[in-house]
Each structure stands twice: as C-alpha cells, then as structure tokens.
Design a binder for these strands. Structure first.
Length: 887
DNA sequence: CACTCCCGCCAATTA
DNA sequence: TAATTGGCGGGAGTG
C-alpha cells in the first residue's frame, strides 16, 4: 500500500524538495504563496504528495509497530509520536488551504523540522525498541524515505549510525533489518571495551577534556598512530567481521559513530566536546588535519550526534572552558558496563574482539571469557546478522560480526558487573554491618554456577579480585542466550557443584552462587536499557533478559526515576538524563517491569536481621526455585553471556522446589509469558537489616531448572546465580551469614540466624558486587511470617525480563564506581552487624555513596533514593535498606 | 558571527 | 551501465 504512494511521490530524489512546503503550496495554493518561493520553485511537480507524506510520517510515527500499512490507512491521525512533526504538517495542510501565507511560514518547517534528529525520531518511532526476537523487521530504505518524506540520503545518515550500534543491520540492497535495542547494551559494552583499549589510556587517567586532548594527541603521535587506534577500532568493527577490509574508505560515518560513542564510554565525565572528538577522529583517519577536514568532521559529528540524541544516548551540552563555551555532548545512556570494563578490561578487551572469537582469533577472549556464551549469543544473533554479513559483503560484514562479538562480550561484561556488585555489596556490608567480609565470604560464597567446567572460574578472595574473577567467569558463563539450553549442559556440572555448597570458591566464576541460605539484595538502578532490552526478547531475549532482570528487580520498574537513585553513582549526571532515559526506555519497554514493591512492608526481619534475613532469603530462594523453571534465567537475563551462569543458577535455584511463598516479596514477573524469558525473583528484604533482596532471573530452560529443583531441598538453594551483569548494576549485597561459606550442605539446615545479614546498599554505582554467604538459611525461619501476602505461593518466578539498570549510567559517572568498587573485605562481625545495621548502615552508606557520587550530593541524593526509592521500587529500597536499614 | 547541519553533488561500490 | 551508498562541503538557518 505504502508503496503506491511512494511511487507517486517521487521515486527517489525528486521529492527532495520539501514535501511539506511544496505540497502545501501546490495543494493549497501554489502560486499564491509568495512565501515559499524558493523550494517550491525548484520542485517541478506540484505534488500533493507532500502532505500525504506528512501524513504517512505521522502515521508511521504513530504506529511504530505497525509500521506500515495499517497505519497509513489511519493516516490522519496524528499519533503521539508523530505529533510534533505531524501536527505542524497537518496544520499546514489546513492552513494552506486557507491560503495564508503566514501559515506557510509557520509551517515551514524550517530547518528544525527537517533536522536529522527529528527525522531520526520519526524513523525510530516506526520500530519497536525491543522487537520480539522472532519478528524481524525489515526496513526498506525507499519506503521509509518516502514515508518520512525525505531523500534517501538522509535515511542513510540515520541508518548508518544505527547500524554502528547494531540497532539495524543491512540485509540487502535497500533492505535493513531492525534489531532494536536488545543488543544495545552489548554493543555499548563492546565499544566501551574497545574504547578503553584505544582511548582508555588517555581518558581514564585524565579524564578531562583537556587532558584527553593531550592524551589523544600523545597517543596519536606516539603510540596510537599505528596500531592501536586502528586496530582497536578495526577490531570492534571491521576486523572481527571479516576483515573485509576496508573496502571503501571506511564507512566513515559508521566508524565515526562508534568511535564517538567510545569516547563517551571511556570518558569519565561522559562529556565529549565536538572539537575533541573531531580531532580524535581525524587522527585516526590519519588524514592531515586541515581545517577543512576538521570542519567536515564536525559536520559529520553533528549528524551522528543528532541520531544519538534521538536515541536518547547523548544530549547536547556546553562546556565552558577558559576559552569559552564549546559545544559538547554528554552521554546520558547506560553506563554500566564501564565497571566491567575496568576490571574486566583485560577481558573485556578480549571481548571486544569477540568478533574474532568466531574466527578463532579471540583466543584471548576465550581464555578469559569465553566463548560459549559468545557463541551462543552469536547464534541467536546470527539470525539477523549473518544475513547482513553475507549479504553486505565488505562493508556490512564488519558489523555483523561485531554484533556477535558484542553479544558475547556483553556477557562477560555482565559477569564482571556482577562481580563488581559483589564487591560493592561487600563493602557496604562491611560498612554497614561491620562485618568483615573478607573472609571469604565473598569468595567463598560465590561459587560460580556458570562455569562449571571452565577454568574460567576464579575465585576471588579479594574484593578486587572479585572482578577479575568475574571476568574469568564470564567466559565460562557466557553461554549464549539462545543456547541457554546448551549452556545448561555445561552448567550442570557446575550447578551440581554449587549445590553441594562447595563451589564456594570458584575463582573467576562469572556467577556467584550463593548458598542457599544467604540472601542477597540487589539494588541498584538497573539501567533502563537493559530492561527494555530484555523484555522484548523472549527466547533470545532471554539472554538479555537477564540484564533486564537485573534492572527490573529493584524497583526500577516501577519507578523509573527511582532507579536513578538507586544507582549510587547516579547522582552525578544521571538525573536528568537518566530520567529521560528511563522514560524512554520505559516507554520502550514492552513490558513493564514488575516491581514488587514492597514497601516496607516486610520488615519482618528487621529487628533481627540475621534471622529475618535468612528467612527472607529462604523465601526468596524458594521462589527461585519455584521460579526455577525460569530460574536459569539469571543467566539469561544477561542475555547472552551467562548462559552458563543461568544454568547454574537454575540449578541452584532448583534446589528448592517448593517453597513457601511466604512472604517475601512479591515477585514480579514480566514477560513471563515466554519460556525463556528471564525471570527474576526479587526477594525482598525481609529483615530490616539486611534485607536482601534477591533477584534471580529465571529464564531459561525450564528443564534445567526443574532438574535442579529436584535435587535441592526447598530452601536450600545452594547457590544462586546471579548474572554478574545483571547485578552489576545493582548495588547489591548480600550476605548471610557466613559461617560456612564453604559449607556445602546448605540445605536448609543452617540457621538463618546464624547467617548474618549484610545489607549492602548499593554503593557503588557500578559495582556490584557481591555476595556471599553461605549458609543456608532455614526456611523455616522465615517462613511465612514476614512475607508478604502479596505473593502467591509460588509466584516465585517473576519473570521480569526487564531489569532496569538504572544505576549504571549514573554510576559510571561517579568516580567511585568507576574505580573499583571496593574492597570488601572486611566482613567481620558476623552477626553483630545485623543487629544494628540500620544505624550503622546509614553512615556507611553515606560514605559509600559519597565516594561514588562524589561530592556532597551523594548524601543528599542518597537520601533521595533512599527515601524515594523505598517507596518506589524494591530496588531502591534495597539501597535504602542497605543504607539506612530503615525498617 | 558562530554554531548547526541541511542539502545534494558526485564518487565509490554494487547489482 | 544503472542503481545504491555514502563522503563531503557549500552555504543557509538560528541564535
């Protein structure tokens, strides 16, 4: 249907005239209008068409889903999305008729209306952010161009940028495949990693723009010149794919876009000025730096920036330096991965290369992390990508490979995140509780589910170690999402291990297993992105879902805003951007997360943290178990990466088949519908103390879970796997008592009480961390009391594909986060802490936050979060709890 | 005037 | 050779 219109309109370029103006004129009063002279004149034909075009646009906007036709029919209505643009147009029509020149003028879109950013928004409005994996949306350039009423050239500008982020891939001539943002986080991770390699040195240490500049310059001249820059870039992009070489000049726009994004991801401040970016990009290009070139680069950067802005990844800001104010852009997208990167970095780097992995190039990666996940991921992706690569040959190829790589990478990242979280948690815990985690805790507890067999696992005794471990783990874990089932195999062993309890220490494991007893809270803001991503995918998505899960759990779902808060680091920049993002994401998200909010209702354990917690834990655990079918999902959520983990998790989860639903928290499920979807369990913190909340993802193969379940006794979930990634964003912590981290037999026996509770608050923005614990809590303890009524008995599973990571973005900013989270280590007093967690915690929190947040705000924001959060989302709550131990 | 960045020529690539 | 892609930079719109 659409087509016909198009044909009419103008097949290709003709239209270029502004549809709107012309149309108006023509339609209405062509001659009359003095006003529209210029363009109009040019245009040979008077097409009524323009108006139509507008309508189409509107329509398209309106029906992202629909895309085409249906909407077209409906044309008239301006839908929300299109409203802005549409409105004017529509008005125009009317007006035109009226024949008022003025109107023309008004309508006259003027540049703004024709801006690439607006165009991009319209374009994006036509497609779902998180399309179901199953459905592949193909984009016809001609069609889109006609619908949007622009020349193809402009569509290329948009598509090229989107392609650089893997939101779309080229399938064939004039044909692009819409992937949506499912892989966005992965892609960003990759880019971040790649960016670190390339620019990291520069950026990291010195962050500031100026510094950066210097560094860049140095690099360029010094190191970078040859190998570094390009290679890195290449890897990410080209190399991986196929080395197709650079067939044409590189596709500058695509590459520039990736590099530009890398700069943001690598930048501590998350702000990149145009001139710096242009310089950097020019360098890479090696071109001589003439002024003209610089100008050209800047033009291109504007083009890219407009698209990225439309994607909600950056926003324009101005940096005032000594010299004056310079145009700059600030990254407002997810930032989480950074953590991983740092720690993982080595790994990550590898990951970046992922592409290579396929080839085999990635040895490094493999060692570090692994391939499985990647592969799996790839597989899932493949569907889409492969096509592109093949079809597109050179130019396109790079992309496709990248994507795959990315996916895998992502996984690893997630793992790392997890680790980070753990670390963070520890810290918090320590701080809050006074406990010293050092023991082992962390390390022990974590057994990684994921990597059953892999050497990957590393145990990290150290807090820092944690991260590394994670990385290592990652690989192992990383199962492809799609693979999840596959993953399970490998994972199985691991799982079994975990169950035993022994697993405790697995180094490097990507996932942590917790002894059944321990509880965790995850907090944090999840990023929206993740969530959104996750949701969509059902099967494939599942992987992602893991990520999403993470995000979700907390309250993020409910509160978008909250998640910001949740992330400790957030305070910094997030605020607005974050909010925006959130909103965006939310909007995007198909599903809404479920957030269980548990308002403070279940304070059950508060008073006695330990016990309470344990109980809570149990509950949680149970749920997981219940959920277990889904459970594996944790891994899933990550989406790709941690498939292994997932499995492991599953296993762990499985342990308890039954469970009382006591009351913990309601679990939220989101997308439960699909089997694979990642599910989360959110456990609410019961005890005041510590309330830990757990989130598990459960997605994945049900079967896997089921298996586990049998094995495990109800409570005892031997281990819980949390996808690192998922967690990463959250601040989380957990801890139970530790008594026996090792204790293999966790089953229900251990008393919960024994276990201490740690509450972690989300500290670090980024980091994640933690975990531990061991013992099991007895389910008994918690049983019902506290729990909430909310849940049904088994609701355990929540599938919430979406997790939000709100925090991450923010976190990044915070110095703290960036750095390492921390060291956790001190968990000493086992129980004591629990008791007065509240009082203590607060202080800790603050400190904690501050660090990350940097600045005084931290506290304030902390409060906000805390307060708000609680209310809002579970996640937030957690934070709060940890921080304040409110209840 | 500086900042943005639209527009579209035209070359490189593909089909 | 025709069509598709997309680099590039003039120069217009905005503030």
């Amino acid at each position: 249907e659409n087509i016909f219109d198009r044909s009419r309109m103008a097949p290709k370029t003709p239209i270029k005239n502004e549809p709107i103006d012309l149309s108006k004129q023509k339609g209405c009063t062509p001659e009359r209008n003095p006003i529209t002279p210029v363009k109009i004149i040019d245009r040979p034909q008077p097409d009524p068409w323009t108006p139509t075009a507008n309508l189409k646009i509107l329509v398209s906007a309106a029906s992202p889903d629909m895309r085409d036709r249906e909407k077209k029919k409906e044309l008239f209505r301006p839908i929300e999305n299109s409203e802005q643009s549409d409105t004017p147009d529509s008005l125009q029509y009317d007006i035109v008729d009226d024949s008022t020149v003025d109107e023309f003028e008004k309508q006259r879109p003027s540049r703004k209306q024709k801006s690439l950013g607006l165009l991009c928004q319209k374009f994006l409005a036509r497609y779902p952010n998180y399309p179901l994996s199953t459905e592949k949306t193909t984009i016809s350039l001609d069609e889109v161009a006609s619908i949007l009423g622009v020349e193809r050239r402009r569509i290329y500008d948009i598509v090229n940028v989107l392609e650089s982020l893997h939101l779309v891939s080229r399938v064939a001539k004039n044909q692009y495949c819409w992937h949506g943002r499912h892989n966005l986080s992965q892609t960003l991770k990759m880019l971040q990693e790649a960016g670190e390699l390339q620019y990291g040195e520069l950026m990291t240490s010195q962050h500031k723009e100026q510094d950066l500049e210097y560094k860049f310059e140095k690099r360029k001249k010094e190191t970078i010149p040859d190998s570094q820059d390009r290679p890195l870039l290449d890897f990410s992009e080209q190399d991986c794919s196929s080395a197709s070489a650079n067939s044409r000049k590189d596709k500058s726009l695509r590459i520039m876009s990736q590099k530009f994004v890398m700069l943001f991801l690598v930048s501590k401040t998350k702000i990149v000025t145009l001139d710096i970016a242009a310089k950097i990009l020019i360098e890479e290009t090696q071109d001589t730096v003439d002024h003209s070139k610089f100008k050209t680069k800047v033009r291109r950067l504007y083009d890219i920036a407009n698209v990225l802005t439309s994607l909600g990844l950056i926003k324009k800001v101005h940096v005032t330096e000594e010299r004056g104010r310079k145009p700059a852009f600030k990254w407002i997208g997810p930032v989480e991965f950074p953590e991983k990167t740092d720690e993982l970095r080595g790994h990550s780097t590898t990951s970046d290369p992922l592409p290579g992995t396929q080839r085999g190039t990635c040895v490094q990666y493999q060692t570090s992390a692994t391939g499985k996940q990647r592969f799996t991921r790839h597989a899932s992706f493949n569907g889409a990508q492969p096509c592109e690569a093949t079809r597109r040959k050179v130019s396109s190829e790079p992309n496709s490979p990248h994507q795959e790589k990315q996916a895998s990478i992502v996984n690893s990242d997630e793992n790392s995140k997890m680790i980070n979280l753990a670390a963070v948690c520890r810290q918090k815990i320590e701080e809050d509780t006074g406990y010293v985690a050092k023991n082992s805790n962390i390390t022990l507890p974590l057994s990684l589910l994921p990597v059953p067999g892999d050497s990957d696992f590393c145990v990290n005794p150290l807090p820092q170690a944690v991260f590394p471990v994670v990385q290592a783990d990652v690989p192992s874990f990383s199962l492809p999402i799609g693979i999840s089932s596959q993953a399970s195999h490998p994972s199985t062993p691991a799982a079994s291990k975990a169950e035993n309890g022994k697993p405790t220490l697995v180094p490097n494991q990507p996932f942590l297993c917790f002894p059944s007893s321990s509880l965790f809270m995850l907090c944090g803001g999840l990023q929206e992105n993740n969530l959104s991503e996750l949701l969509p995918t059902a099967g494939d998505l599942g992987n992602r879902s893991a990520e999403a899960q993470a995000a979700v759990p907390p309250t993020g779902c409910q509160k978008r805003s909250s998640h910001k808060c949740s992330s400790p680091s957030a305070p910094v920049d997030d605020e607005e951007p974050a909010a925006k993002k959130q909103t965006l994401e939310h909007s995007f998200l198909p599903l809404s997360l479920i957030v269980p909010k548990k308002p403070s209702e279940s304070p059950k354990a508060e008073s006695s943290p330990g016990s309470g917690c344990s109980a809570a834990v149990h509950l949680e655990m149970d749920r997981f178990d219940l959920a277990s079918p889904a459970a594996p999902e944790a891994a899933n959520k990550e989406s790709v990466k941690p498939s292994d983990c997932q499995e492991q998790e599953k296993q762990s989860q499985n342990k308890d088949p039954d469970e009382p639903p006591p009351g913990n928290e309601p679990i939220s499920k989101e997308n439960a519908s699909q089997p694979f979807q990642p599910q989360y369990l959110y456990v609410q913190p019961t005890a005041g103390l510590s309330s830990f909340n757990f989130l598990f993802s459960a997605n994945q193969a049900p079967g896997a879970i089921s298996l586990a379940a049998n094995q495990m006794p109800s409570l005892s979930v031997p281990c819980v796997m949390v996808p690192s990634a998922a967690l990463a964003s959250f601040p989380l912590v957990c801890s139970p008592s530790f008594t026996s981290p090792l204790a293999p037999a966790p089953d229900s026996s251990f008393s919960a009480a024994a276990s201490t509770n740690f509450s972690m608050s989300s500290l670090a923005p980024t980091t994640p961390v933690f975990i531990s614990t061991t013992a099991v809590v007895t389910p008994k303890v918690s049983p019902a009391p506290s729990v909430d009524p909310q849940q049904p008995p088994h609701p355990a599973l929540h599938l919430s594909p979406v997790l939000t990571r709100s925090c991450s973005g923010v976190k990044l900013d915070s110095p703290v986060c960036m750095g390492h989270p921390v060291t956790l280590l001190k968990l000493q007093q086992p129980t004591s802490a629990p008791l007065t967690p509240k009082s203590i915690r607060p202080a800790h929190h603050e400190a904690f936050f501050k660090t990350p947040g940097s600045l005084g705000d931290p506290v304030a924001w902390k409060k906000h979060e805390g307060n708000q959060t609680r209310n809002a989302s579970s996640v937030q709550r957690r934070l709060e709890i940890s921080s304040t131990s409110p209840d």
